[in-house]
């Protein structure tokens, strides 16, 4: 099992109309400052050896001023020496919103599944999610949203439900067309301003 490089995953999904938040590998703090362009950014260490970035302190959030970016970059650089090879990813910050998880998994017997759930810190606590076998159709996607206890939070109106249904259909299509990919995690996806941004991506083959 191999985790696909972040930017490769980012581009694969982008080509299929699945948007993740703007991101770029940065090799220096200057590069990170240029990427920020005055907007708040996130810096993350990406390494096969660090699956849970937040827990290991390999993420710095809400960096806006050049000084902040500079010091966080050197801090992450120092920590990352233990988990070589690594790269440092800069991402634009997303506004606050509702966090959901969209995923894909492969079952030995039944094949590929897609999953939708209330995300962020609530995933493990509430375990509020819906799964369907791929490929899914419109009815399946809708019934996934309907099934969630948190339906009123993540899809309070027809428009937001439509957004989720379309995203689920795209993810199912992508997952089915990429035969070698066995697991997929868009976690979290943040719903804000009538749109969504995938903040973290994980494709495993």
């Amino acid at each position: 099992m191999e985790l696909i490089d972040y930017m490769e995953a980012y581009n694969m999904l982008k080509r299929r109309g699945i948007r993740a938040i703007d991101a770029k590998y940065v090799g220096s703090s200057d590069e990170a400052i240029r990427f920020s362009g005055g907007e708040p950014i996130v810096l993350k260490v990406i390494s096969q050896k660090a699956m849970h970035k937040t827990k290991s302190g390999l993420v710095a959030l809400g960096l806006e001023k050049p000084d902040e970016i500079k010091s966080s970059f050197s801090d992450l650089y120092r920590k990352a020496q233990k988990i070589k090879p690594y790269r440092i990813l800069a991402q634009k910050m997303v506004k606050n919103g509702i966090e959901i998880i969209i995923g894909g998994n492969t079952d030995k017997q039944f094949g590929k599944f897609v999953l939708l759930g209330l995300g962020g810190i609530y995933v493990e606590t509430f375990k509020d999610f819906a799964m369907r076998s791929c490929p899914i159709n419109e009815y399946d996607a809708r019934s996934m949203v309907e099934q969630l206890r948190s339906k009123k939070i993540i899809a309070p109106d027809g428009k937001s439900e439509r957004l989720l249904v379309d995203l689920l259909l795209k993810v199912s299509k992508f997952f089915m067309s990429e035969e070698s990919i066995t697991e997929l995690d868009l976690n979290p996806v943040i719903l804000h301003d009538d749109t969504y941004s995938a903040v973290d991506l994980r494709l495993i083959r």
Binding site: G103, N105, Q109, L115, V123, E124, F129, E183, N187, R202
Partner: peptide, 12 residues
């Protein structure tokens, strides 16, 4: 992944 940990056998 989170997905794999949620997607246990019964859930499937």
């Amino acid at each position: 992944s989170h997905t794999a940990s949620l997607a246990g056998s019964y859930q499937t």
